[in-house]
C-alpha cells in the first residue's frame, strides 16, 4: 500500500455566478482522504457540502466554477478536467456517487441489470456476461437476492433501491465513493440497513468514501475522519474521536450540542442563533462570526486558517482565532452536565 492519499483538496474555492455577483459557496476548503478511509463532511443546508460533492464528480452547475485551489485525485490534479475527461477517466471506474435516497436516481423504464451493463460497456471492456456476474455478486454484498438484478427500479422498496444504487456505485470497483445524504429520504430502520452494508464495504477496505450529511451521528457511527463546515468554510477537521471529545471550533462544539441523543432525553439542546450568511465575492472573515457568541473583532477582519490544534497528536485542524478560550468559556457557561448519569439506553 502506498502512502498516496486518494483525495486531497487544497484551499479550494468554489463560486457561482449569480445575478447579484459571485456567490462563494466554498472558500479555501482543504482536507485529505487516505486509502480506504471513510470521511464525513457535515454541515447545515447551504454550507457548501453538496457543492463539494458535485465538484468531485465533475457535475458542478453551469454557473459554478473552481476559482482557486487544487483538487488532487491519487496525486493527479483534476480541478480542470473537462466533462469528457471525467467520463473517460474517472466516473464510475474511479469515483462513483451515491446520490440522495429518493426514487429518482434510476431509470424507471430500464431493468437495473441493463443499466449496469450499459455502464460497464461505456466505461470498460467487460462483456455482458462478466458484467452480469459482477453485478450479481454485488447484489449479494448489499443484501439483495441476485435474481432480482433483472427487476425494474419500481419493484424495489426505497431502502432496497438505495442499496441497488450502492451496488451500482461499487460496480466498477471505484477507489472513491461520494455519498451525498444517502439515507436522508429513508426511514430509520432502512437507513440502518443501508449503513450496515456501507460498514461491510469499509471492512473489506476497498473504497474510500466521502459521506456528506447533515446528520453528525451518522458520521460518528460510520466514518474515520470528519470535517465540519459552516457557510463555505471548514471549521474543524480531525478523526471522529478527537472531534467528539475535544472539538475547539465554536460551531463544531455547538453543533454537537444541538444534536439530540435519545440516550439522554433530558439533556438541554444547544441553540445556535441566526443563520448562515450569503457570502458574495472574496470571503475574508470567519463566516460563523455573526452567530458565534465568542467572536471578537479579529474574526471579522480576516478568515481564520485551518491550523493544527496543539493539544492533539493526530491531525486535528481548527480554523478559529479563539480556539484557545472559546471552548473553556463554553464549558463554564454550560450547566453542570448531568446527562451522562441519566443514561437510559441500557438494553443492548
Amino acid at each position: 500500500m502506498s502512502e498516496q492519499p486518494i483525495l486531497e483538496l487544497d484551499d479550494v474555492t468554489i463560486q457561482y455566478r449569480t445575478a447579484g455577483g459571485m456567490l462563494t459557496a466554498v472558500s479555501d476548503a482543504s482536507f485529505t482522504i487516505g486509502k480506504g478511509e471513510y470521511f464525513g463532511l457535515v454541515g447545515e443546508s447551504g454550507c457548501g457540502k453538496s457543492t463539494i460533492a458535485k465538484t468531485l464528480i465533475g457535475a458542478l452547475d453551469d454557473n459554478g466554477q473552481i476559482s482557486s485551489g487544487e483538487i488532487r485525485y491519487k496525486g493527479e490534479p483534476i480541478q480542470d478536467y473537462t466533462e469528457k475527461q471525467f467520463n473517460q477517466e474517472l466516473r464510475w471506474k474511479e469515483i462513483s456517487m451515491i446520490p440522495q435516497g429518493s426514487m429518482n436516481n434510476l431509470d424507471p423504464i430500464e431493468k437495473i441489470s441493463n443499466q449496469a451493463i450499459e455502464i460497464a460497456q461505456v466505461h470498460t471492456d467487460m462483456t455482458r456476461a462478466e458484467a452480469l456476474e459482477r453485478f450479481e455478486e454485488l447484489f449479494e454484498v448489499v443484501g439483495i437476492q441476485k435474481s432480482r438484478i433483472h427487476d425494474y427500479p419500481h419493484q424495489f422498496s426505497g431502502g432496497m433501491e438505495q442499496r441497488a444504487i450502492i451496488a451500482l456505485a461499487l460496480f466498477l470497483n471505484p477507489s472513491l465513493i461520494i455519498a451525498d445524504e444517502p439515507t436522508t429520504a429513508l426511514d430509520v430502520i432502512m437507513q440502518d440497513q443501508v449503513f450496515k452494508y456501507l460498514d461491510e464495504i469499509r471492512e473489506e477496505g476497498g473504497a474510500s468514501m466521502v459521506l456528506i450529511t447533515h446528520d453528525i451521528s451518522l458520521v460518528f457511527e460510520s466514518c474515520d475522519d470528519i470535517a465540519i463546515m459552516h457557510s463555505g468554510q471548514i471549521a474543524e477537521t480531525g478523526d471522529i474521536e478527537t472531534i467528539y471529545d475535544d472539538s475547539r471550533h465554536p460551531y463544531a462544539f455547538m453543533l454537537k450540542g444541538a444534536f439530540p441523543d435519545h440516550r439522554y432525553p433530558d439533556r438541554e439542546l444547544e441553540i445556535i442563533d441566526g443563520y448562515p450568511p450569503e457570502n458574495m465575492g472574496e470571503v475574508n472573515y470567519c463566516t460563523f462570526v455573526d452567530r458565534c457568541p465568542y467572536a471578537v473583532d479579529e474574526c471579522r477582519e480576516m478568515a481564520p486558517e485551518l491550523e493544527q490544534w496543539e493539544g492533539t497528536e493526530s491531525d486535528h485542524l481548527v480554523a478559529c482565532f479563539r480556539s484557545e478560550d472559546a471552548y473553556e468559556e463554553h464549558q463554564r457557561s454550560m450547566p453542570e452536565s448531568d446527562s451522562e448519569s441519566t443514561e437510559v439506553h441500557g438494553d443492548d
Binding site: V188, I189, I240
Partner: peptide, 25 residues
C-alpha cells in the same frame, strides 16, 4: 418499538451500537 429505537444513530463515536437485524420493508 425496540427495532425502531435500536436503529436510531447515536452521536457518539465511543458508543458501539449494533446495526438493525430487521430485514425488508
Amino acid at each position: 418499538s425496540q427495532a425502531l429505537i435500536d436503529a436510531i444513530p447515536v452521536p457518539d463515536p465511543h458508543y458501539n451500537r449494533e446495526r438493525t437485524k430487521i430485514e425488508g420493508a
